[in-house]
Design a binder for these strands. Structure first.
Length: 721
RNA sequence: GGACGACUAGCUCAACUGGUUAGAGCGUGCGGUUUACAUCCGCAAGGUUAUAGGUUCGAGUCCUAUGUCGUCCACCA
């Protein structure tokens, strides 16, 4: 069969993917005997919130390159696919959909609403898996998992009960980050800080008068005596929280207020006496050095409050409205009451001054609502022991980060890990496995178990025995703490082994302007559109071509066009080789240097020698560079080798070798055959090296090559040496 | 406020541990139908490597400052 004049990705891709699936080779248990040692990758499960973006396309390409390379190198290569229920995120997208229909989740009620989300999950979960297939991913679909499937729920339950038995779980009323829209607590990692212009208000808190006989005599000394002060000024960006103040704190080293320690002030507007206390946590350089303490609505204030046994007065409720305050404020939204408070303070002459102030305001990472800090009854997982577990394997080199520079920020973060608030007040997720509890678990609680729960844990499965620990985790950097750290300690805690050996942190895909690509910013690009336009191979190659070092990628379509042209080049070079094909050859021998032993040719021309030497070089460098996660470099080298060394030079030269007058008539047949063999040999070797990057076209051509011992698929051909 | 990274041709990026005239792809200009490919082939133009100093026989590469951009972290009310 001849190859058509042009390569048509669409038809070929569908046909080839079917061939792969039917071969069974996606499942490592069905690979030929030579595949022995396991090589496992678990996919970072995409959220079922929507379709895949460029980051997914990049990461999936990377993982498929690794898996396909290792499969050819004789490993039992297993790539485990799946999707994540993504708690708040998915609940939010479904709520948004309902809102368009004029409904809220409360109209439906919990059961109906969760049903709606399951429907959504079915639709988008499948869409995502299909997109991965379109990209050519060689995942073992027979092992596909979802973080809320039946078995997975068992894993989550088991983990929770395990922690409870260890005494690391506790329920307590703590100040938590609270999203007033999602109506749930959030962990620190689920916040996004946005810079906002605000004010720093300086407010006078009058001192409680103590009878002092001297005060009747006017003090004429030039040096101001603090004793003569009648108030203390505090600075705040959130005046509304003052209604819940239960102290004013100063730094013990602060000379300015020494005389005031132990005295009391009257909390304006509330007209209640509160003490002046000292605490190291107060920064004497900020504001006036005196800080109002609101234990109910601030983390540090809460801490100070615990130390000094201060009362906790909650003045903002879960809907962001004022409570427990003087009547005129009750029921107002926090911001409304802020305005009123400022006006009232001004009227009383208690507002000393106002400064403009730019500060970082925490927002809900899913719906962008400003976060309130409120005291709330939540479940926490103690991080004392687990944080140490997360550090150990990385320190000892049992888990390596690529690039290595990510280790430092990782350690910094783990060192400061606070107890993990694992309960969420939403409806979509794993219910806390305790009678009478209605809350669900943080979505990351289940993701943390992914590398072993996906293999069947807590059951003692063969898969766990065969494929855990996994080998490489390839992921985005922004979930290093959110996810990777938690997988590491979970792996050690439950499996006694780190979950993977290498963590590859891939580039972030930015647009040409260097901005993050995102749907909400309107800068998103749908990878499926690109596949339609250029073909899956060109898309993969164009992306891989740009992965240089640890640099982020500014995505430009030019590279995909380059990929498409490259595919066309490969196609046509193959047409030439097939038009000049030798009788069958066996390519299953050692290095290009030992070619002559198998082809029974002794005399090589200079061009023959040059191309064989170049092939030898590219085999060695590609093998080494892929081992080091140098995807872009490998792609560049393969490109240069194939286009220039092979096509521009050797194929052109081969035309001369076929017709050169110096070749004696009687040798002509022999020489022709030799050149044909070299052409086919170099082409087939190149296809093997290129297959991890551009699997479809290489397979399509491979199927046409006259090779001895040909495999059912290029997927399981031996990697060249 | 800290940490890290980037800055090289019009655009996106290369150049291993400092070592000839700093290279590709896209774009631009000119010219090409020889056993595949016009999605091709050949040639050309285009760079004071962000700026200023320094180390060195020699710096895109090392050091110091500055600027611009980006990412992450942080309890400054």
């Amino acid at each position: 069969m001849e190859l058509s004049k042009q390569y048509e990705p669409k038809q070929a891709e569908e046909k080839i993917y079917k061939l792969w699936k039917e071969s069974g080779f996606f499942n490592p248990d069905k690979l030929p005997k030579r595949h022995k040692k396991p090589y496992t990758i678990v996919i970072p499960p995409p959220n079922v919130t929507g379709e895949l973006h460029m980051g997914h396309a990049l990461n999936s390409t990377i993982q498929d390159i690794l898996i396909r390379t290792k499969r050819m190198q004789g490993f039992k290569a297993l790539w485990l696919p799946g999707t994540d229920h993504a708690g708040i995120a998915t609940q939010n997208v479904v709520e948004k959909k309902l809102r368009k229909e004029g409904k809220t989740r409360f109209d439906l009620g919990r059961e109906k609403f969760v049903e709606e989300i399951w429907k959504w999950k079915e639709e988008y979960g499948n869409k995502i898996l299909n997109q991965l297939k379109k990209l050519g991913c060689s995942c073992d679909w027979s092992r596909t998992r979802f973080t809320m499937d039946e078995g997975y729920s068992e894993a989550v339950k088991e983990a929770f009960l395990h922690y409870q038995k260890k005494g690391w779980l506790y329920k307590g009323k703590r100040v938590v980050n609270w999203c007033t829209r999602c109506q749930t607590s959030l962990s620190d990692l689920e916040l996004e800080y946005m810079e906002e212009k605000g004010n720093l208000w300086y407010i006078k808190y009058p001192l409680v008068k103590i009878p002092n006989p001297k005060s009747q005599i006017p003090n004429k000394s030039k040096i101001q005596n603090p004793k003569s002060k009648t108030y203390i000024t505090v600075a705040t960006t959130r005046p509304e929280t003052m209604l819940g103040d239960t102290a004013v704190a100063i730094n013990p080293k602060d000379e300015r207020y020494r005389e005031l320690i132990g005295k009391k002030v009257i909390l304006p507007l509330v007209e209640k006496e509160i003490p002046i206390i000292v605490d190291d946590l107060v920064d004497l350089k900020f504001g006036t050095g005196a800080v109002k303490v609101t234990p109910a609505h601030d983390f540090i204030d809460y801490e100070i409050g615990q130390k000094h046994k201060l009362e906790i007065v909650q003045v903002i409720d879960e809907k962001g409205k004022m409570i427990n305050t003087p009547n005129e404020y009750n029921g107002l939204k926090a911001l409304e009451s802020r305005e009123k408070i400022i006006t009232n303070l001004q009227a009383k002459g208690l507002l000393e001054r106002t400064e403009e102030y730019i500060h970082q305001v925490p927002k809900c990472y899913r719906c962008n609502t400003t976060i309130e800090l409120i005291p709330s009854l939540q479940w926490f997982l103690s991080m004392k022991k687990l944080a140490k577990l997360a550090t150990k394997p990385v320190k000892k080199g049992k888990i390596k980060f690529h690039p290595k520079s990510f280790e430092k920020p990782y350690f910094d973060w783990v060192k400061n890990m606070k107890d993990w608030c694992i309960s969420r007040q939403i409806w979509w997720g794993h219910k806390i496995p305790i009678e009478g509890e209605t809350d669900v678990l943080d979505t990351w609680f289940s993701s943390a178990l992914w590398p072993f729960a996906i293999l069947g844990w807590p059951k003692k499965t063969n898969d766990l025995k065969n494929y855990y620990p996994t080998t490489v985790l390839s992921t985005a950097r922004d979930i290093l703490n959110l996810w990777v750290a938690r997988m590491i300690f979970s792996g050690l805690e439950f499996m006694k082994k780190p979950p993977f050996k290498d963590v590859y942190i891939h580039a972030t895909v930015l647009n040409k302007e260097g901005k993050r690509m995102s749907k909400s910013l309107g800068t998103g690009v749908n990878p499926i559109d690109l596949i339609e336009k250029y073909g899956a191979d060109a898309t993969r190659f164009g992306l891989a071509f740009q992965i240089m070092g640890g640099q982020d990628i500014k995505f430009v379509e030019d590279n995909l066009l380059m990929g498409k042209k490259f595919c066309n080049k490969i196609w046509n070079a193959s047409r030439f080789v097939l038009a000049n094909k030798p009788t069958q050859i066996n390519t299953d021998f050692g290095s290009p240097r030992s070619l002559h032993r198998f082809t029974q040719i002794k005399k090589l021309t200079a061009a023959d020698k040059r191309i064989l030497k170049a092939l030898d070089r590219i085999i060695k460098s590609a093998t080494k560079d892929l081992e080091a996660f140098e995807f872009g470099k490998t792609a560049h080298n393969l490109y240069d080798f194939f286009w220039h060394d092979f096509c521009d030079v050797y194929i052109e030269e081969s035309k001369n070798q076929f017709t050169h007058q110096n070749f004696s008539q009687k040798n002509l047949g022999g020489r022709d055959e030799k050149t044909k063999k070299i052409l086919l040999y170099v082409l087939s070797s190149s296809l093997k090296l290129l297959h991890p990057f551009i699997p479809f076209i290489t397979e399509e051509i491979y199927q046409q090559l006259p090779l001895e011992n040909k495999q059912k698929s290029l997927m399981v051909e031996k990697w060249p040496r």
